[in-house]
Nucleic acid binder design. Sequence first.
DNA 1: AGTAGTTGTCTATACAAATAAACAAATAAA
DNA 2: TTTATTTGTTTATTTGTATAGACAACTACT
Lengths: 247, 247
Amino acid sequence: MRVTADDKAGIARWRQIADSLRLDIAEGRLAGRLPGETQFAERFGVNRHTVRRALATLSEEGLLTATRGRGTFAAPRPSRIVYPVGSQSRFSENIGAASREPGGTMIASAREMASAELAEAFGCRANATVIRLELLRVADGAPLIVSTIWFEEARLAGIIPAYAEAGSLTGALTKLGFSGQRRLWTKVAAIPADPRDAEHLHCALSTPLIATTSLTVTAAGEPLQYARSRFLGSRVELVFDHTGEPV
Amino acid sequence: MRVTADDKAGIARWRQIADSLRLDIAEGRLAGRLPGETQFAERFGVNRHTVRRALATLSEEGLLTATRGRGTFAAPRPSRIVYPVGSQSRFSENIGAASREPGGTMIASAREMASAELAEAFGCRANATVIRLELLRVADGAPLIVSTIWFEEARLAGIIPAYAEAGSLTGALTKLGFSGQRRLWTKVAAIPADPRDAEHLHCALSTPLIATTSLTVTAAGEPLQYARSRFLGSRVELVFDHTGEPV
DNA sequence: AGTAGTTGTCTATACAAATAAACAAATAAA
DNA sequence: TTTATTTGTTTATTTGTATAGACAACTACT
């Protein structure tokens, strides 16, 4: 089979244009009144209808409003939520500090065997039982983060009911007698959204996500929780403050 | 115009399948011998030819090798490069420590007016002159990072020739009499690759990138460099170590 | 040698996407 | 009001995408 090594193959021209314009709007390069459909068509080297198909999708997404005779206008772009990450990170504090109502729901919870990765982080046997908690975190009424959090059952058997009652992780841990815990490290990667995450975050497949993996320990330094969070790349920005780090 | 709000609209079925399989291979869910084309066709609910079109592209990308009569086999997946980020981050040290030959080339350099964002970071006038340096960083022979770095001209007039001579940023700064600089903070976002970055990083448009923005200051605490780097999400993982942070 | 299972190739058909050329309908400004 | 500009609609044609069925070529195993 003859296959050209073309990046854009298999993606309709109108889709490419829509994606390009969506990015331009998100980055603020396109705002207010947009150029006419005819101008766009010429700029992209396509027929006017192809541009119209692209604009129609963006209009459907609420990024654009077009009026016959007047023109097409870009909606004002929302700013990124700033999310500080450090040894003391907590979801509710972070989002709360940015004066947006936080929220979260438990998507799922399960007991399972520790994977090799997890066993290493917890310093336990590979077949030890762990508790997995899946949370969906919301800000401004739209989903922002999907978190998968693991706990050692031996240490945190009652975490699920405690969370259900307290409504927050920090609260649940306090209820179980843990305080003064801190985050040891955070790993960050960029990944395309998989079908499950795309559904929860209400975004398209392959949308760029920030994937963080982190280990939190007790005040005494014992492993407490291992978490993997996926942040909607378009709505959030993580901030790491290095002041205070050893030189 | 009637437009359904469908995520996958405008993306050919074979492309969606190719993207899905590419992710499966990258995450290790698919390895060694793959299911037959007929099985894939049934699993995805499409014709065998559509699957073949998807496999053909992955084969073109070197992720697959198919042999008539034998079957189709996934290439072994490369591991992510671990990139520690902290107050002392330097590119050559990081990649060097992972025992991979580092490398870098200057893509471009220019003098320009400070943007509002930049002026705030540097604490200077908005129309002050800054020097912009664009670097492409390579590991294992493949591009990994595109960095845009700004310096205040008033403080670092000779940075371009110094870099050209020293071959590294740290070396260039030493040559200009700066040492003991440290990174104050790092912001992290996930963005789709734009046309320029996609070209440099040799990746498809809209590939997830990690975008970091950081401020480095002199030993005395004065702003030294403001940098915006784009990391290829599929090949790298950033690690932030919070030990030593104030509690 | 034979057989089951695999990838590779071919032809034909139906549907979506993109192009082309006009024209209608609304708006803004002269 | 008139004019130019803009988005919206229609019809027709061409190119790409997906399906269907059949068969060839090759491999691994019995």
